[in-house]
Every structure is written in C-alpha cells, then in structure tokens.
Simulated scan of single mutants.
Amino acid sequence: MKKVLIVETNVTRYKGTKEATGLWLGEAAEFVDELNKAGIDYDFVSPKGGFVPLDPRGMNYTDESIISVYEDPDFVHRGLTNTLKPAEVNPDDYFAVYYTGGHGVMWDFPDNKELQLIAKEIYTHDGYLVSVCHGIAGLLNIKDDNGNYLIANKSITGFTTAEEILAGKKSVVPFLNKELAEKNGAIFKKKRFYKDYAIKDGRIITGQNPFSVRSVAKLLVNEGTLGGN
C-alpha cells in the first residue's frame, strides 16, 4: 500500500509581527491518529525540511488522543524535528498529499513550486489532494500541465473569512481563502464557523477548520481502503 504525504509549515511567526504561529498540532496529530487506526503509513514534509514550529494557540485545543500522538517519539522525530525536504520526496510512493494548517502555512505553502509539483504528480496518477483549515493554501495555486488550476470547478472548503475575523487575524493574513479559491475557479463551500465540515469532490478532500480533521481523514481512509492503494 502506498503512503500519505503530510505537509507542514516552517513559518514561526505572523509575517511582520513578533507573534508566534506554526503548525496547528491537532491538524497533524488527529490525522495521524486516524491513519494509525487504519494501518496506513505516512511521511512528513515541509517546504524547508527539518524543524516544524507549533502554533501556541493550537495547544489550547488538545485532548488525550492529540497529546498521545504528540508524546510519540516517532511523531516528534519525523513530524516535528526532521521532516523531509521536498527534494527527498518521490511522489510515486504516495496515494495522497495532506496539507495541515496553522496560520504559518499561508506564507510558505501557496507558492512553493516543489510542493506543487509533488502534489500535481500524485494527483495526476490518480492520487488525492487533501487539506484542512488553512492547509487549503497548499491547494489554491496548483496547476496542471495546461496551466489550469486543479481546484477549478471543484467544491472545496477551508478556514472562512468569518473564522478569520473571530480569530482576530483578518488584517494580518496575506489573503482570504474564500476570495483566492473563487478567483482560481473553485466553488467555496462552508458551514457555520467552527463547525465540523468536510467535503469530497472527485479526488479532492477538504475540511473547513480544526474541528474537521477526523472527518477529512475518514473520507480519505475510506477511499484508500476501497481503492486498494
């Protein structure tokens, strides 16, 4: 069975500020927990490789399952301190790429050509593009060989403008997910703020916010199991 490639951020602070950000722990840990239950293997990659910072605000939204993954030496080693560099990744090894969130991703996911190429290769070979919350930033600018956005005419979701306002970050982020998604041809869907919401359109699976991680993972696990990847 092929693996899932989990993408995480290297960004430590909101650009232009002294405020810390990074990976929203639950968006990696809950996803990993679901993959572990399903017996699906995975690797971690980040734009620069190596260290992945944690968004301190995300540590206020943990439970025993998240902390258990966080305490796992394998997760700490592969997922937080020694993530792969894009150049070390062979797209043929994976049936899906999953973009985690945390505000940091809005600066190092959208325009990373190496990650875009990896994701395009996985998707082109019948793989899945998956994201949750701000992780949608990794999907927004991926194009096919003809220059068309892969999200065009696809129903997707991600952290909403209302949620950005409630988080107090609307004036800090470099773009709003809904606006850029629609600019690039996607059909942006949402539910009430901070409610679990995950959708699948073809081989693209997305979740709205941190409360949607397990729903996203289960949609993918179901595809991986049925598809025999």
Rank of each mutant, 00 (worst) to 15 (best):
K2I: 01
I6D: 02
N10T: 11
Y14M: 11
G16H: 12
T17L: 04
K18F: 10
L25A: 08
L25C: 03
G26N: 12
E27Q: 13
A28N: 06
A29Q: 11
E30P: 02
D41Q: 08
V45W: 01
V45I: 02
S46Q: 01
P47Q: 11
K48N: 08
G50T: 01
F51I: 11
P53S: 04
D55C: 10
P56S: 04
R57I: 13
Y61E: 11
S65V: 10
S65G: 04
I66T: 15
S68N: 15
D72R: 13
D74S: 15
F75I: 12
H77F: 15
T81E: 12
T81C: 03
N82Y: 04
T83A: 01
K85C: 00
N90L: 06
Y94V: 00
Y99P: 00
G104S: 03
W107S: 14
P110A: 06
D111E: 14
N112Y: 13
E114A: 12
E114Q: 14
L117K: 13
A119W: 01
K120D: 08
Y128D: 10
L129Q: 04
V130E: 07
A137H: 04
L139M: 15
L140M: 10
K143S: 01
D144R: 02
G147S: 13
N153V: 02
K154V: 07
S155R: 15
T157G: 06
G158Y: 09
T160D: 05
T160A: 03
G168L: 04
S171W: 10
S171F: 12
F175V: 06
L176I: 14
L180P: 04
L180M: 05
E182R: 09
K183Q: 10
N184W: 09
N184K: 13
G185W: 08
G185L: 13
F193H: 03
Y194S: 12
K195Q: 09
K195G: 03
K200Q: 15
I205T: 07
G207D: 08
Q208K: 06
N209K: 06
N209W: 07
N209G: 12
P210G: 03
F211P: 00
S215G: 14
S215V: 00
S215D: 14
V216P: 07
K218M: 05
L219T: 07
L220V: 03
V221N: 05
N222I: 07
G224H: 11
L226K: 11
L226Y: 12
